[in-house]
Design a protein around this nucleic acid. Structure first.
Length: 567
RNA sequence: GCGCUCAUAGCUCAAUUGGAUAGAGCGUUUGACUACGGAUCAAAAGGUUUCGGGUUCGACUCCUGAUGAGCGCGCCA
């Protein structure tokens, strides 16, 4: 509501200024950083610059324009402070508008900006026959949350898990499996065993480099669909996927497609052909490249031996997705270190003459660090996500036993709290930054954490549980005190926050907002008794906190967290 | 060597994208339960925004140089 008022006011005053000074001025209308100053703030420096009149004179003119605004009924105070004009709004009017909007919308916070638009999101994408590491966690939860936010804004979302299920390493694993693998062991514990075989392969290859050649041959035959190898490949893929599904189930993550790299195997020849027809291919040191001039290093399309590379596969996938889903945007949730790759990809697409290179977005993210270094076990191995999730659940169970030992379904709730804590920790900071992974801080339940949000929602639930709310007997006067009004204004921001999270492709915008909302609620709660005698007052407060809970729960769900009623 | 990120309180991070007194959480110190959930709240201490120069009425934000950290740069993905 306030955002709309701001933009209406902006338009109105800009027109008035244009009439007055016959100059076009871009007026800044913002929210003061300190809410004691007011609800809307207009710095007039930019006007002064254009019209070259004394500051105080301009301030006075603008103040008069605001005073005579057609929206003036909404204002309760207009104040000049140095170069700023600060407006306080009529709190009753604001509350009324915000509450009404909430009441009349079944899906508060939504928007129709995405109607008719399709966004393809490529995320998670673990590598077959390798453990699902904490490294994949980031891509998974960021992609999932962005997808949810987009759906809330009415976009059609196509979720693709671009599995790493192809490449020379499969030749190695198949070779190792056939020559020194134990079928029973692999069956029992597929990924761990396959990793061991892969490691063993490299150990042996040190003394017997000729097996590298064997592995390459096997891979080549796999590409040519040698049924024996295809069967093994399918087997590895299946057992790996089965393991990943356990993680996805815990995280509540789903995909529309699991088309991995192999899926595009037969779609690459046409890419090479098209590049050749458009005279973009150039032979260089035996390989085929697309020259990207000064801007970027050349893109390597084809190896000396004729086989294709990463970028070729990504081109094939891109064209397939464009044909199949006719996307308006395609998002690749992939780490920072691949920035150059996506820059090259875009550049090649542009050179091929497709405008939609502009719709390709690399949703980059930083590393997961522990004590400032890339996270790994003591032996230097990758940390398995499932272990981390279990550990977090165990720790939250410990806390529940301390804080609320009589709680029912403790294990189940501990799991929801622990997993959500990890998800929230991943999403609360801007994605391109590295994140520090400290289990204790995440599940410590104190401060800016997932459990803090869940706890706040649970507190509200326990009040609401026993009470009916009558939406028709609300007195907006109860929303005018500072604590309530902060809540009203924050509730009002929800949609804009989601839109901002979308435009930045950063769930952290939402995560940070939820922390603010929860914090305002807890302040409110410590100052304002809800269960008062007066029925109208009680009802008004109950309704307010029920809205807070709605947003907390809705927001947590969008982030991929679990909503609980008790903890 | 070239390119891309980043540097804010002891620690983890914000800062309306160039606006007012740079804000939160953790940690530290202190206070608040015969209260609707204290996993909470309130308060204090903590800053030359890495360093220099520039642009601007105004710079954490833009330009430039330095220092430090990370990442990438033709036959992996």
């Amino acid at each position: 509501m306030i955002e709309i008022l701001k933009s209406n006011l902006k338009t109105e005053i800009e027109t008035k200024l244009q009439n007055h000074y016959s100059e076009k001025i871009n007026l800044v209308v913002e929210t003061p950083k300190n809410s004691e100053l007011g609800d809307i703030s207009i710095p007039v420096f930019s006007i002064v610059k254009v019209v070259r009149r004394p500051l105080l004179e301009v301030v006075e003119i603008v103040r008069e324009m605001i005073e005579s605004s057609k929206y003036k009924d909404n204002f309760s105070e207009i104040k000049k402070i140095s170069g700023f004009i600060n407006i306080k709004l009529n709190r009753i009017k604001v509350s009324q508008a915000v509450i009404n909007e909430f009441s009349s919308n079944q899906n508060y916070g939504n928007s129709n900006i995405g109607i008719g638009k399709t966004v393809v999101i490529d995320y998670s994408s673990p590598n077959i026959a390798k453990p699902f590491s904490v490294g994949h966690l980031r891509s998974t939860v960021i992609g999932h949350a962005i997808g949810n936010i987009l759906e809330k804004l009415s976009y059609k979302v196509v979720r693709i898990n671009h599995l790493g299920d192809f490449g020379t390493q499969f030749g190695k694993i198949i070779y190792a499996y056939l020559n020194f693998g134990d079928k029973e062991k692999v069956k029992k514990n597929p990924i761990d065993e396959l990793v061991k075989l892969y490691v063993k392969f490299h150990k042996i290859a040190k003394d017997k480099p000729e097996i590298e050649e064997k592995a390459r041959e096997i891979f080549k035959e796999l590409e040519q669909k040698n049924p024996k190898y295809v069967e093994l490949w399918e087997y590895f893929r299946e057992v790996s996927l089965k393991e990943y599904m356990k993680v996805y189930k815990l995280l509540n993550v789903e995909f529309d497609h699991y088309d991995g790299e192999a899926f595009y195997n037969d779609k690459m020849a046409s890419v090479v052909k098209e590049l050749r027809e458009k005279s973009l291919l150039k032979k260089d040191q035996g390989a085929m490249i697309v020259d990207l001039g000064e801007e970027y290093p050349p893109a390597l399309i084809q190896k000396r031996d004729g086989s294709t590379l990463y970028i070729t596969r990504d081109l094939a996938a891109l064209f397939y997705r464009k044909r199949t889903y006719d996307f308006d945007e395609v998002l690749y949730v992939v780490g920072n270190e691949q920035k150059l790759h996506f820059d090259q990809l875009k550049a090649v697409v542009r050179k091929m003459g497709y405008d939609y290179y502009q719709d390709i977005h690399h949703i980059n993210f930083g590393l997961v660090l522990q004590n400032g270094k890339k996270m790994s076990t003591r032996e230097g191995k990758v940390v398995k996500l499932i272990d981390v999730l279990n550990e977090a659940s165990k720790l939250s169970l410990k806390y529940i036993n301390e804080k609320n030992p009589s709680l029912e379904n403790k294990e189940e709730i501990a799991k929801k709290v622990g997993v959500s804590a990890i998800i929230f920790n991943d999403l609360k900071n801007y994605r391109a930054n590295d994140i520090e992974f400290n289990l204790k801080d995440m599940v410590n339940f104190v401060g800016q954490t997932g459990p803090y949000l869940q706890y706040t929602s649970v507190r509200i639930s326990s009040i609401l549980k026993e009470n009916q709310i009558d939406k028709d007997s609300i007195d907006y006067n109860y929303y005018t005190n500072d604590y309530s009004y902060e809540l009203i204004k924050t509730i009002d921001e929800y949609r804009d926050i989601l839109l901002k999270a979308k435009s930045e492709y950063s769930p952290s915008v939402l995560a940070k907002y939820l922390l603010t909302l929860a914090s305002y609620f807890n302040s409110f709660y410590s100052q304002e008794k809800v269960m008062v005698e007066d029925l109208i007052e009680r009802n008004s407060k109950l309704y307010l906190i029920s809205i807070v809970r709605y947003i907390l729960d809705d927001g947590m769900k969008l982030l991929g967290m679990k909503v609980i009623k008790k903890m």
